[in-house]
Amino acid sequence: MIINHPLLGPRDAAEFVYLGDAALLNRPDWQASDAAEQFYDYQYLRDNPAGDHRELWYHEQGDRSWLIVARNTLSHEITKVELARDVARARKQAHG
């Protein structure tokens, strides 16, 4: 596969390490009253879609950036690649 890195252009997937669902960005608040349940969901409960999936890839043999790759798990078509840091920052701004 080839991942079209937002800063570097197309790079072979062999340079990357896969982590999993991009929902791992949404780490719960440890002080929430139901923190234990929220962390349990965060850690273990994930969708396994046959189709579009947003997932985390790390450019270990490259610029060391974490990316969020929108990939179709059936066709491997990649429709969007973003820097995870940008997404995480936008999320923080939205959630305050």
């Binding site: 780490r27 820097l83 995870a84 840091r85």
Partner: peptide, 9 residues
Amino acid sequence: EFCRQCLWP
């Protein structure tokens, strides 16, 4: 790097 970029950017 995951913590730095994705959790506490």
